Amino acid sequence: MQHFVVVGILVILTTVLTYLGLDVAGLAKHQHPVSASLQSISIDQLWNWEMMVISFLFSLIIVPMLYSLIVFRQKKGELEDGEHMEGNATLEVVWTVVPIFLVVIFAYLGGKSLGDVRRVDPQAVTIFVKAQQFTWTFEYPEYGIISSELHIPVNKQVVLKMTSADVIHSFWVPEFRIKQDVVPGRYTEYRVTPILVGDYKVRCAELCGTSHSYMENAVIVDTQEDYDTWIAEQVEIAKLASLTPEGQGQLLVARNGCTGCHSLNGTRLTGPTWLNIYGREEEMNDGSKIVIDDAYIAESILDPNAHIVATYASPSQMPAFVFTDEEIANIIAYLKTLK
């Protein structure tokens, strides 16, 4: 009986210490990264309970095992066999019934958490999301805005209606705790109610190609006032852009997610940067040199594998786009402004 008491006390102490260690590491009650959505509250609570049970089960296995290895080891001079023991019906009933109760309890808690995550607000803000290798594009249908940044108002549910232009992606903002696959040919929904103003990032959580690790865009949770201001600014920008060829070209670039592979600031991505691209001489992967002019840009849009810049992957990962001659001319006009 003494051994059972000692082991019981050690199991309790080890459970507490294990849980506190997980908590300090940001894996229990105080999680990292910070919780920034209403849906994350129930998810974090469920995770916290799971960490408590895991700490106990870990201790329940490790402590008796180590205690037995130390206390009941064969001592010097002991040659006889240990005490012969056969099954324990009571113990077998306990370790069958208790796990069943735990499974039922966590099934209920999991269902409750799922219900909290999927609860529908009829006044939710609707935003369309398009994923493609290797960027995200956000469209605000109520205002006719297309952006590479996701701006959402704090304390208001947002429903993202998401689809993919190529392969399966997965929308993941760690601070929101929710992850949702984005599938070609269909729309999936992602509902979130942000509760903490700040700047975050959406990452693709599904391996989607060679530049998968670079597929991240800014997510900004604004106050309602800042959100309304941003919407007004974007509406005005879109209105002015539609008046010029280069402005229409910029809108086409945003709508088709071109900056996911072509940076505007000189940074090397999957494709060549567009900064100072027009008129530049580039060496191709066949050793030839070509000046980047109207003809080359049009050819590259319609047939990306015709001529590939040296040091970039061949065949090109860029899909062949279908644009009218006017749309191609507008894109070229926009590229000419990137100095």
Rank of each mutant, 00 (worst) to 15 (best):
Q250C: 06
V98R: 03
L251F: 07
P141G: 08
A298F: 12
D226K: 11
V94S: 04
I220P: 00
M1Q: 11
Q2T: 15
D181P: 13
K289M: 10
A124P: 07
D286H: 07
Q250W: 11
Y296G: 04
G82F: 09
L91C: 12
P194C: 07
H307A: 15
I331Y: 01
E175K: 03
L251W: 03
D81M: 15
L264C: 03
Q250H: 13
Y200I: 11
F72C: 11
R280V: 14
E327C: 10
A218E: 12
A28I: 10
Q123P: 00
V173C: 05
I152T: 09
F106A: 10
E327A: 08
Q180H: 04
Y67L: 08
M318H: 04
W95Y: 12
A131C: 08
G144P: 02
Y190S: 05
E282Q: 13
E233M: 12
I290V: 15
V253W: 00
P174R: 04
F171R: 00
R191W: 03
V6W: 02
Y296V: 11
T210L: 11
F134V: 10
I43L: 12
A218V: 11
H307I: 09
I146L: 03
K289G: 07
V182W: 00
F4N: 14
T18I: 10
N48H: 13
I290H: 10
V219M: 03
G185L: 07
N330P: 07
S59I: 08
V63D: 00
V63F: 00
K239A: 14
E142K: 15
E92C: 08
L66W: 04
G209C: 06
Y140D: 07
S288C: 09
I41Q: 09
W136I: 08
L22T: 02
D286P: 05
T193F: 01
K75D: 14
W274Q: 07
L338R: 08
T18V: 14
A306I: 10
D199Q: 14
A298D: 07
G287V: 09
L27Q: 13
G249D: 01
I41R: 07
V154Q: 03
Y227N: 00
Y312G: 05
V63L: 02
H3Q: 11
H169R: 04
Y143F: 15
E139G: 04
A313K: 12
R119Q: 15
H169G: 08
K161C: 10
D166W: 03
G260P: 01
M162K: 03
A298W: 01
F176Y: 04
V322G: 08
D226W: 02
D294S: 15
